[in-house]
Computed example of a mutant assay.
Amino acid sequence: MFDSIAERYDLTNDLMTFGWDRVWRRAVRQAVYPQSGDQILDLAAGTGTSSKHLAAWGADVTACDFSEGMLARGRELHPDLNFVWGDAMDLPFEDNSFDAVTISFGLRNVADTKKAMSEMLRVVRPGGKLVICEFSRPVFSPFRAAYDAYLKTMLQVISRTVQENGEAYSYLADSILQWPDQDGLAHMLMETGWEDVEYRNLTGGIVALHRAVKGA
């Protein structure tokens, strides 16, 4: 599915979120706060939109994705980045390889969320951090109702004007609506061994930014 939407993926995201995805990705960079020389794994990196901002701060970023189409498009757009194919449930990296792992708008697309969380824990060094940026549940009830209606209707209308395979976004809308809320995701992180789990809402809870640390 993601191979078929790779070419216009970034444009579609900009249109569907009215440009807010750029704000959310900046929040990811601030949460990771990469230092020069840090080894960072950007999982479900897609075309490298988040990876390039992390690398701009001097980090050594590995952009990893399951979609060959996304990786190919990413290499075209950002030839200076290191793109690697990988399955989030069976990462092709040694234990304790990275100072930080981040995943933006991709965790809900993994078949086994807890398995992916465990794999991310495995490849991060003790004391290393995890930052998850993912769609969540708006906290204000009237706003939540309007947002749900948008996902069920306008999201597909917008995607079909840009993507040949606009039907793919029907799945994406369903995956957002079925995804655990902020507290639910936090509990899953704790259950898989992550420590110091916390989150903050972005744009009223449309997106939540979860942070966690691997114990020493």
Rank of each mutant, 00 (worst) to 15 (best):
M1S: 11
F2P: 07
F2K: 07
S4H: 09
I5Y: 05
I5D: 00
E7H: 09
Y9T: 09
D10I: 08
N13G: 10
D14L: 15
D14V: 14
M16T: 08
M16S: 02
G19M: 15
G19F: 12
G19P: 14
W24C: 13
R25S: 05
A27R: 14
V28N: 07
V28M: 09
R29P: 03
R29H: 10
R29F: 08
Q30H: 13
A31G: 12
Y33F: 07
Q35E: 11
S36H: 05
S36C: 08
D38Y: 14
D42T: 00
A44M: 11
A44N: 01
A45H: 11
G46L: 14
T47W: 03
T47K: 02
T49C: 06
K52S: 12
L54T: 02
A55C: 01
W57D: 05
G58A: 05
A59S: 02
V61K: 03
T62K: 10
T62W: 15
T62A: 12
C64I: 03
S67H: 07
G69C: 07
M70C: 04
L71E: 04
L71G: 02
A72Q: 10
A72W: 08
A72G: 04
A72C: 12
G74M: 02
G74R: 00
E76T: 12
H78E: 09
P79D: 13
F83M: 01
A88S: 12
M89I: 11
M89A: 15
D90I: 00
D90N: 12
F93N: 01
E94D: 10
F98M: 00
D99F: 09
A100M: 08
V101M: 06
F105Q: 01
G106H: 02
R108Q: 09
N109S: 13
V110C: 11
T113D: 11
K114M: 15
K114P: 06
K114F: 05
M117Q: 14
E119T: 09
E119D: 13
M120S: 08
R122W: 11
R125D: 12
R125Y: 14
G128Q: 07
L130Q: 10
V131L: 11
C133R: 10
F135V: 05
F135M: 13
V139H: 10
S141N: 06
P142F: 15
P142V: 14
F143G: 03
R144L: 15
Y147T: 13
L151R: 02
L151Y: 00
T153R: 01
M154T: 13
M154V: 14
Q156I: 04
V157F: 01
I158E: 06
I158S: 04
S159I: 00
S159L: 01
T161H: 01
E164G: 06
E164L: 06
E164T: 13
E164A: 07
A168Q: 01
Y169R: 00
Y169H: 05
S170Y: 05
Y171L: 06
Y171G: 00
D174H: 05
S175Q: 02
Q178V: 05
W179R: 04
G184N: 04
L185S: 00
A186C: 01
M188H: 12
M190E: 15
T192L: 15
T192A: 10
W194A: 05
D196M: 07
V197D: 09
V207A: 15
L209Y: 13
H210S: 11
V213R: 08
A216R: 02
